[in-house]
Amino acid sequence: MKKEAEIFVYGAEQICASCVNLPSSKETYEWLEAAISRKYPGQPFKIHYIDIFNPPEDEAAKAFAERVVEEDLFYPVVTMDDEIIGEGNPRLKDVYKKLEEHGYHAE
């Protein structure tokens, strides 16, 4: 494994208007955390939930949260290495592919 992966899930309590009938951003964050832990047991990673309407003081997180709002991206938006890997209804396959590029391997 190259380095511990760090995944960010940007979203809001209110479900995206274009994402009706999909899980909330927080539910997606929890689902991703559980799915990654099951697929890559014993391989550490960090996952962060960022509320786009109340971002932390971290400049990078704050700037991307503003981008999600300004560009009307479908949230939740999942990023890794400053790259969007999922938007609205992220696909596990895409997240797994990015993790495997980092040297993670399924067990």
Rank of each mutant, 00 (worst) to 15 (best):
M1T: 13
K3N: 08
E4Y: 02
V9T: 05
V9M: 03
G11W: 05
G11M: 03
G11V: 11
A12Q: 14
A12S: 13
E13T: 13
Q14S: 10
C16G: 13
S18Q: 13
S18F: 12
V20R: 14
V20S: 14
V20T: 15
L22M: 09
L22F: 09
P23H: 03
S24Q: 01
S24G: 07
K26T: 10
E27D: 09
T28I: 05
Y29E: 06
E30D: 13
E30Q: 12
E30F: 05
W31H: 11
L32G: 12
A34P: 14
A34M: 10
I36P: 06
R38A: 13
K39H: 06
P41R: 01
G42P: 11
F45V: 08
H48G: 02
H48Q: 03
H48R: 02
H48V: 02
H48F: 00
I50E: 05
D51E: 10
I52F: 05
I52G: 07
I52Q: 07
I52N: 07
N54Y: 01
N54E: 13
N54D: 14
N54T: 13
P55L: 01
P55A: 10
P56S: 09
P56V: 09
P56H: 08
D58S: 12
D58N: 15
E59G: 15
E59R: 08
A61R: 12
K62Y: 08
K62S: 15
A63H: 09
A63M: 04
F64M: 02
F64H: 04
A65F: 00
R67G: 09
R67Q: 08
R67T: 15
R67I: 08
V68M: 00
E70G: 07
F74T: 10
Y75T: 02
Y75G: 08
P76M: 01
T79M: 04
T79V: 03
M80D: 05
M80S: 09
D82Y: 15
E83W: 11
E83K: 15
I85W: 11
G86H: 07
E87G: 05
G88Q: 04
G88K: 03
N89M: 04
N89G: 12
N89I: 09
V95L: 00
Y96A: 11
Y96I: 11
Y96L: 03
K97S: 14
K97T: 14
K98N: 01
K98E: 01
L99W: 09
E100Y: 03
H102M: 08
G103Y: 02
G103M: 01
Y104F: 14
Y104M: 03
H105K: 10
H105F: 10
H105C: 06
H105D: 06
E107M: 01
E107K: 05
E107F: 00
